[in-house]
Design a protein around this nucleic acid. Sequence first.
DNA 1: ACCTGCCATTTACACCAGTTAACGGGATGC
DNA 2: GCATCCCGTTAACTGGTGTAAATGGCAGGT
Lengths: 160, 160
Amino acid sequence: MADVRPEGDGAADSTGAGAAPAGPLAAKVDHLFRTVRPAKGEYSYEHVATAIREAGGPTISAAYLWMLRNGKRDNPTMRHLEALASFFGVPPGYFFDDALAARVDDQLALLATLRDVDVRRVALRASGLSSESLSTIAEMIERVRELEGLPERATEEHQD
Amino acid sequence: MADVRPEGDGAADSTGAGAAPAGPLAAKVDHLFRTVRPAKGEYSYEHVATAIREAGGPTISAAYLWMLRNGKRDNPTMRHLEALASFFGVPPGYFFDDALAARVDDQLALLATLRDVDVRRVALRASGLSSESLSTIAEMIERVRELEGLPERATEEHQD
DNA sequence: ACCTGCCATTTACACCAGTTAACGGGATGC
DNA sequence: GCATCCCGTTAACTGGTGTAAATGGCAGGT
C-alpha cells in the first residue's frame, strides 16, 4: 500500500517564482491526476468536475481542482475530499498526512497486543490505579522486559 | 460484533424542532466523545480544543466542537478532521468510511476500559512479556490496587 | 490568414466554515 | 445567601473556501 508515495515536488511552477513549495496535499492530488487517467493524456479539470457532480457528489469547480493540484488551495472540506477520493478510487485517508498514519499504526499495534489474553488482563487490572502507581508498575515491567531480553520500544503518546 | 454503531441518535434535540436527524458525522463525533474519555466524565469541549492547539494542531474553538457533535455543522475542513482524528486516536478515514468506523468502534469498546493514557502505556509495555512475568505483574498490580483501596474486580469481561 | 472551440490559468466575489463574545445554569466556596 | 468559576449553548461576525466569469494560449477546421 505504501507504493504510491508522491513526494519531492511537482515542479509545476510555471511562473518562475517558486515561492510556495506546494504542500503534501497538492503532491497527492497531482499524483492522482498523473496516474489515474484515461487512455490518452490526463483528465481535464472540467471532466473531473462534471464527473463528480454527475456521480451525485457535491458541486466542485474545475478552477478549484486546479488550485488544489497546484497548491493554491489546501484544506478542502470533508465533502470535497470524499468526492475526490471517490472519483480517483482511493480511500479518503489517502489525502491525510502519513505521520498521522504512523501514530495510528501505533494505536492499532497496541490494540493488537490486547488480543493476547494475559496482556489484556494486566491492562484491565491496571485500570483505575493512580498515575504514580501506574508509572511504578511501568518501571517494573520495564525491568522484567530487560530480564526477558525484550527491546526497549519507544512508547510514544500524545496529549498531556 | 459489538454493535456499537453510532446511528440516528438525534434525541439530543433541545429546541423541540427535531428537523435535523443529525448526520453521520455528528453521530461519529458524539460517539468519540462518549467512548474515549478521561477517568471520569467526558472531555470538555474546551479541553479538547486546547489539547489540539497545544499538540501543534490548528486552532479550533470549543463552540465549533459542540456544533460538530450536535450536527449544527457538518463538513469540516481537512485540517480540522486531521486534528480531531489525531486527538481521539482514530484514523482520519474514521469520519468517512462506515465500514472502517465500525471496525474502529470495536477496538474503541475495548479501549474504553483503558481510559487514561497511563494505563495504555502499561499495556504497551506489557506486550511481549512471558505468561509468567505477566501474571507476576498482574499480582503486583493487585497489591497496589488494594493499597489504593480499589475493589477487587473480577478479570471478567465487561458488557457494554 | 481568420474563426472556433477547448483548456489551463487568473481574478473578483459569494457564502459557508469557523471564531469570538455573550448568555444561562449548575456547582463550589466564602 | 451571594459571589465565583466552569461548562454548554447560542448569536453575531470574520475570513477563507469554493464559484463564476474573464483572459490568454493552443490546435484544428475552413
